[in-house]
Design a protein around this nucleic acid. Structure first.
Lengths: 187, 187
DNA sequence: ACATTTGTAGAGTGATTAGTCAATCATTAA
DNA sequence: TTAATGATTGACTAATCACTCTACAAATGT
């Protein structure tokens, strides 16, 4: 692994444990096994590093979510697959998922431009809009449906992550919780 | 308003805007109109102040939630009232509600003892357990139902707070969104 | 072979921070 | 009146932080 990846990895670990301002850049460099100056060679400022880490994680999650769906699936199957992949990824990458949450509820979210935020949700919003148009989903505001699905996902993650279930039990819970949200939003 | 309250008020405003470590105690004192030393007279450390602020806000929210219910209500009415009061309070106290979320997803949550956390959720969990026992709610794990309701509430808050609806429209949305979650969890 | 860019190092710097402290001021109690 | 306790102040300090700078090594292009 190259030094730049090591820096991101170290930053993730420390940010999740100690928070953004609670983690000095010197500690990140130390944890990554590089010199102080090296960190600032790759990221001009600490804020740059934070944003880069967020974008990196979001990209990885996005790739995983949409890598699993294909055109032959029914609408319900598509949503279920995205829901499933998201939770499976989240449970396998808890630090990353916690980081996303921490970032979202922190003032650092303002480091992202509005366009960047919109771009991230766009694909999801399109899928939901399509579902409404084709009468698969209730005729509610797109943003509201998006929020409902997202917060349900985060909630289920929190519940599963805070307990200590077996892999099989986790899978069962994920399936059941999709049924719950699906009944709530389907037409 | 006494100086101690001014300090909490100033801390809330600055923490929500700049984060915990992003807000120096000197700025809090300045914003509150007191001397540096006064802050440390009331709160031994910055961490103490953060926890005190969290407890203060939680107490205010709790008081508001449970002040509105009484024994004569049906089970559904009780839940609906709590849901309603929570969202109404949250929308009228956005900084406070954002602070709670920020605190929950931050490493500072570990400053709270497990007993304190458990104590806070206990009343809610009891109500849910009662609902399951009396067949008002689905027979799912209490913690799961709690998580579902909580994350739904946070989601709806985020949706309403991020838009600019009239008071009437807000009320309508809150009512409709209770119907959604109620259908999901009722027996 | 040489020149240029890029990666890496770590000591150094000026600014900032949480928390202290000694000195007043306000209030109450004996 | 006097003593005692608590409230308030702001200058001060030791530590810490983000970031710079200079030097050197490695890679790359010509």
């Amino acid at each position: 692994m190259d030094k730049q990846s090591e820096i991101l990895k170290a930053a993730l670990k420390l940010f999740v444990e100690f928070g953004f301002h609670g983690t000095p850049t010197s500690k990140i460099a130390q944890e990554a096994g590089v010199a102080n100056g090296t960190l600032f060679h790759y990221y001009k400022t600490k804020d740059d590093l934070i944003v880069a880490l967020y974008v990196d994680i979001k990209t990885r999650l996005g790739g995983c979510m949409y890598g699993a769906i294909d055109e032959s699936m029914s609408y319900e199957e598509t949503l279920k697959t995205i829901f499933n992949e998201t939770l499976t990824w989240a449970l396998a990458n808890k630090m990353e998922f916690n980081f996303i949450q921490q970032f979202h509820t922190s003032p650092f979210i303002s480091l992202l431009s509005k366009e960047e935020i919109a771009k991230q949700a766009q694909h999801h919003l399109e899928i939901i809009a399509k579902g409404i148009k084709k009468k698969h989903l209730k005729d509610l505001p797109v943003e509201l449906l998006y929020t409902l699905i997202t917060s349900h996902t985060f909630g289920i993650y929190q519940f599963i992550a805070s307990s200590d279930f077996s892999g099989a039990k986790q899978k069962k819970l994920i399936n059941e919780s999709f049924e719950l949200i699906w009944k709530m939003i389907k037409q």
